[in-house]
């Protein structure tokens, strides 16, 4: 008979699971920046470096019909940039593709 205590609820189950199953850890910040006129820029910061951001941006560009790029930042790592207000689109796409969980997404801006 094994120790009963271990059969009950494990408070660290979440932590263990998320670190094992998911590559993505930490929040993904989706921001918007205004440019000149009514143009805007969407940035996605905090995606795991395990993901191939170039492939993601290629898919996003095609999906949202916008241009985009991957920018390397010394502090924040690789950041995805997309033209236009793509906050809704990128959130849906990231969750639908299973790259990021909805609770890991944090949308900033107005």
């Amino acid at each position: 008979m094994s120790i009963q205590n271990l059969n009950t609820f494990d408070p660290f189950a979440d932590a263990i699971k998320s670190s094992e199953d998911d590559v993505q850890d930490g929040l993904v910040h989706v921001r918007i920046q205004q440019r000149n006129g009514r143009k805007t820029l969407t940035t996605v910061q905090g995606l795991s470096s395990e993901y191939d951001l170039k492939k993601i941006v290629r898919a996003c560009k095609k999906e949202f019909a916008c241009n985009g790029t991957v920018v390397e930042h010394p502090e924040y790592g690789e950041v995805l940039q997309l033209q236009g207000d793509q906050r809704e689109n990128i959130c849906q796409w990231l969750t639908k593709s299973g790259l990021v969980k909805p609770e890991q997404l944090k949308v900033h801006g107005f």
Partner: peptide, 11 residues
């Protein structure tokens, strides 16, 4: 949470 502006793209 502390306030962080995070990544700012060049506009």
């Amino acid at each position: 949470a502390s306030i962080k502006s995070g990544f700012q793209a060049v506009t």
